[in-house]
Amino acid sequence: MNDNMIIDLYFARDNSAISETDEKYGSYLRKIAANILANREDEEECINDTYLKIWNTIPPLKPLSLQAYASRIIRNIAFDKYRRITAEKRGGSDVPLILDELGEIVSGKDTPEAEIDRKELVRAIADFLDTLKIEKKAYFICRYWHAMSMKDIAKKYGKSENHIAVSLSRTRNKLKDHLTERGFSI
């Protein structure tokens, strides 16, 4: 079933919309949650919350890509849950490492919201990624969007973990320069 047909089911308030979504994107969404949370119970909770949010937002929303929409929702939900879990000191994903890596780019200080327009920042990062070679862009998305481990990325692309780590480190340095040059007070 294609995305439009599934979205039509949501608009018709047909419960099968959720099962169809799960059948088509369930494993993909679970993988995103698993990368961030590394806890099966939490992952399932995230999945359920994601489907509920999709159910509650479609309609009125009609996303162009159900996959992109659902994946963004589950990433946000999983990351919120990750923050709660961290406060409770449990969980074993790569996210702490990933955040430390991203910490090399930013100052870590509170920045007045007015100074950083989120949309501008996202656009600047997207522009930066477009300047990268395709494999470096892929490593970046795998690591910092999907929160994949270095090991999984290395396996996916047939490279060594060291190669991936070095490549990502260079990309982070370039991203920092890119954002600084564009006046972002990060």
């Binding site: 963004r72 990933i98 920045t111 996202v122 990624l129 047939g158």
Partner: peptide, 22 residues
């Protein structure tokens, strides 16, 4: 900016992983 904010901002990018020839 905090690293969590950057992580969230990255989450607003396109999640598609470019196809790389293995």
């Amino acid at each position: 900016m905090k690293k969590e904010d950057l992580f969230e901002a990255i989450g607003e990018l396109d999640s598609n992983i470019p196809q790389v020839k293995k």
